[in-house]
């Protein structure tokens, strides 16, 4: 049995129904989002499962995971905070925000906090240049935007997650 199919059968059918019957491969990206909900990253076994559902090789599925930045192949923080520090945001203080925020968290950009709750890094443009500094948070189940940020505001958000995680 295919565990992914078993657990998300009707959702997967709905995804497949969006595309022509002979173009199942189109569903690879939505199926990877479903798979990633389990652990926050895609496992080797899931590559096989997605490939099996779509009739493509695990290597083809892995190439998609590797190409697109919102798929992950290893565990990092429970919440991935990505601060946009591209040009327009940097002109509005995003580089300093990222540095100060990392200092407060006690990590380097690209690092994960010791409690494993937060991974933080810079990221390419998120289409929110007018509300910098800003970041997105990718969790297992969703992506959310946090705009017009200060380090204090961002730390409050992190603390709320820590409390929710019983720390």
């Amino acid at each position: 049995m295919n565990p992914l199919r078993e657990r998300y059968g009707s959702e997967i059918d709905n995804v497949l129904a969006k595309y022509p019957a002979d173009q199942k491969r189109s569903a690879v990206m939505p199926l990877l989002y479903i798979a990633q909900r389990e652990r926050g990253y895609i496992t080797r076994a899931q590559l096989d499962q997605v490939g099996e559902i779509l009739g493509i090789s695990s290597t083809d599925v892995a190439s998609i995971v590797g190409f697109y930045t919102l798929y992950h192949d290893k565990p990092e923080g429970k919440y991935r905070i990505q601060v946009c520090n591209d040009l327009p945001c940097a002109l509005r203080g995003a580089d300093k925000f990222l540095r100060d925020f990392c200092d407060r968290l006690g990590v380097e950009p690209g690092g994960t906090t010791a409690d494993g709750v937060v991974a933080v890094d810079g990221v390419m443009c998120l289409a929110a240049c007018h509300r910098a500094p800003m970041f997105q948070v990718q969790s297992r189940t969703e992506i959310s935007y946090h705009e017009d940020q200060t380090v204090d505001k961002a730390m409050q958000l992190v603390e709320s997650w820590r409390q929710a995680n019983g720390q």
Partner: peptide
Amino acid sequence: DESEPGTFKDR
């Protein structure tokens, strides 16, 4: 797919 740094109109 609005991704050009500086563009946030389609959103």
